[in-house]
Design a protein around this nucleic acid. Structure first.
Lengths: 240, 240
DNA sequence: CGGTATGTTGATCTCAGTCAATCTGGGTGG
DNA sequence: CCACCCAGATTGACTGAGATCAACATACCG
């Protein structure tokens, strides 16, 4: 069993081999995307799959009552937009200026059947996304707001684009509204969670988009939650 | 866009073709499993993938503090036990007496690379599981306990094994503890949610494992939640 | 028939959602 | 260049859904 195991972020785990990327390029279109662009919406006919080249995308699903759940953020190397019986099950918009490869699903499907190796890469990507989704189920089912925020911050810290480990400065790619919809909380609760982590000396807010990570292992403690059995009192003094 | 769309349950969506099943049988072992048997636990070396033949399995992940989140129940036709960098990320136990095909992952991997069609079937299964996981993210992130229970019941109603549509009787395959860990609530909250649905005349509890579905469309209303805009008062009277 | 595990209900408390009131920083027009 | 504006962020006060603790009911099983 691996010991502590912060999840390895998807983009760095398995990139496509050069020739596979090349064959994808032959059927794909490279697109420059402005910030805030909607690539597709739930219920639309799913004709394209997208491979992120640069930038960040937000994959979300909305209930009829205005609630929105952000399912995942997609960063370079990630693939999204697979069809659910012909239609998109989710929506996707860019959070930053971005560049993607837009791949016709019919062509990709064809290529997957012809190139089992390529298909296997995509299978592994899908497996990773599945794992990631499962981790989010645990987060939403078991953790309180502070723990969720700690989890989110620790996940981001694995991505060099966002975390300057030298200065312990973490750049947040999203605003509080998106963060709240990702964590499944109200924006106010997200802000309060930041306050709490700050008052415990684990992080320090510089701007709303940039924080200093003061105590990473403290963050990991928060994520794990208080030990229920055996010396629960050591961390039970929540009321600081 | 499809209109109302209760999700099609996994096992009936795409079964493996006969010859593919046959080739899997050649490398797999069919196992009879007693109720309550642990197939594997988180962190163990992931040497086998499992295909459910009969019975129900529980896939779960546990935090250090004793909390357990049930990620999914697996029913006949479902595949589970894929490795996360060599190890199982989750645990799996049988909830009923069961029968599975145990497939060595190395052999399956090999077969997937040789038979792109077979691999594609597994890819589609994985995609469906991924979708299912995303739906659970939405459930846990956005819905209250009653809505979660309604969602669960409606999902079960799509599986003929559990739902006798003729008599509107739904068999629950699990106890309240498992249900609670699945819904991400306390067992008491699950019981209270049942009470509430019953007091609203949507279901009737026969035994703790068998309920009569009185008003399916009412259940769907609960799942959707109150319309926030436009005539919110029509359903806002929660305090019955 | 006890006896234990499960299920339900009641009472209380806590966390997080809601509403409202500032506070802040970045962008704009004068 | 500066005053203003406004969306986003934070904090406070209040409230409600759900967790927790405790009591009781029921069912299952030897």
């Amino acid at each position: 069993m691996r010991p502590e195991g912060d999840a390895v972020p998807a983009p760095f785990a398995s990139a496509l081999a050069g020739d596979q990327l090349a064959s994808i390029h032959r059927v794909a279109t490279s697109l420059k995307i402005d910030r805030g662009t909607t690539l597709f919406s739930e219920g639309e006919e799913a004709r394209f799959v997208y491979l992120v080249d640069e930038g960040i995308f937000r994959v979300s699903r909305s209930g009829e009552s205005g609630q929105r759940q952000i399912l995942a953020f997609r960063v370079p190397g990630d693939v999204f937009g697979f069809s659910d019986r012909g239609d998109y099950a989710n929506s996707a918009d860019s959070v930053t200026p971005a560049r993607v490869l837009r791949i016709p699903w019919s062509r990709l499907q064809q290529m997957m059947l012809e190139d089992a190796q390529l298909q296997f890469h995509l299978f592994e990507k899908m497996m990773r996304d599945f794992r990631q989704a499962q981790s989010r189920i645990v987060m939403l089912g078991q953790q309180n707001t502070c723990q969720r925020l700690a989890t989110f911050l620790l996940d981001l810290m694995n991505i060099p684009d966002f975390y300057d480990a030298r200065n312990s400065v973490l750049k947040l790619p999203i605003n509080r509204f998106d963060l709240a919809d990702f964590l499944g909380t109200a924006p106010e609760s997200a802000a309060r969670a930041f306050s709490k982590l700050e008052s415990r000396g684990l992080v320090r807010r510089a701007t709303s988009r940039s924080i200093r990570i003061v105590d990473p292992s403290g963050l990991r403690m928060v994520r794990r939650g208080p030990r229920r059995e055996a010396r629960a009192e050591s961390l039970a003094a929540e009321s600081v």
